[in-house]
Write a protein that binds this DNA or RNA. Structure first.
Lengths: 144, 144
DNA sequence: TCCTTTAGTTGACTTAGTCCACATTAAATA
DNA sequence: TATTTAATGTGGACTAAGTCAACTAAAGGA
């Protein structure tokens, strides 16, 4: 692989670290961290979600995940239902309160994206979008 | 801005969080964190680098930066030279040892990139690279 | 059956990052 | 020029985030 290509890719990685950092630090005015928001999101997207799925997808330590989920449960954001098929597993569900919170987070996240792209023309926005799709598809297919 | 576009962008953000997460967690077999590696990198890239530049570029708390730099100094990775023009500022320089470490980190980082792209054709790699350049240029111009 | 793997929990701990008050020096302005 | 105001960096005390190891309990084989 060519030195220059690697250089450009690493440059992009540094750049995009900053982009994501802005999103993450710009406090979503809730009391939840980005990781926590992401967990709520995944629980809502998945059917039959269990803790171990999240551990793998989000690269989070099992014990840490366990504590976050327990906190969510105490706060009434999720419910754990013991799986009838495999009693080691707990199926995770958002409660009404959890869904409400997620919706709030989602609309704030949408707003962050809008702000980042504010000022660009529609055709520029579309170029970026298409570029993102290319990157994701090719890398996804390859590894992740 | 169209709902679908926002959706795709946020999907990419989640995806790329994972990509970067893989890089960051995959321990560069040194005793330094990604943030620390990034600081060494920036000191090496910049001429007349001062702590406050890094604080702004990397979004790190001033006191935290101060401590990291002090640690680097103790470990002989950097040197601070008081600015003759503005004595509040310390100019930062890598020592030979610091440069050596950075080189090691750089070659390991290059290797990570190679592994991620391993299996893709040259034309696919180039498509990704060009997509990255598009994203960076457009967003850079716009905001960052 | 016994051994291995998977799922999850708990306690103790380390690392990372934040907040605030402070000292110096420089720059701005009355 | 005297007096604010802003920039740069430091240190103490703290909280949040993440890790490690030991454990229980259930499932899935050979």
């Amino acid at each position: 692989m060519d030195k220059e290509i690697i250089y450009d890719i690493r440059q992009f990685n540094r750049f995009y670290t900053k982009v994501l950092g802005l999103f993450n630090n710009q406090i979503l005015d809730t009391d939840y961290s980005l990781t926590e928001a992401r967990i709520l999101f995944e629980i809502s997207e998945r059917t039959e979600c269990i803790a171990n799925n999240l551990v793998q997808e989000l690269n989070i330590d099992r014990s840490y995940m366990s504590r976050i989920l327990r906190k969510f449960e105490r706060e009434g954001l999720i419910e754990k239902k013991n799986s009838p098929i495999d009693s080691r597993k707990n199926l995770l569900f958002l409660t009404g309160k959890g869904e409400e919170l997620l919706e709030k987070i989602n609309s704030q996240s949408d707003e962050q994206v809008i702000q980042l792209f504010d000022g660009l023309t529609n055709s520029e926005i579309n170029e970026i979008r298409n570029s993102m799709i290319v990157i994701k598809e090719k890398l996804d297919k390859n590894k992740l």
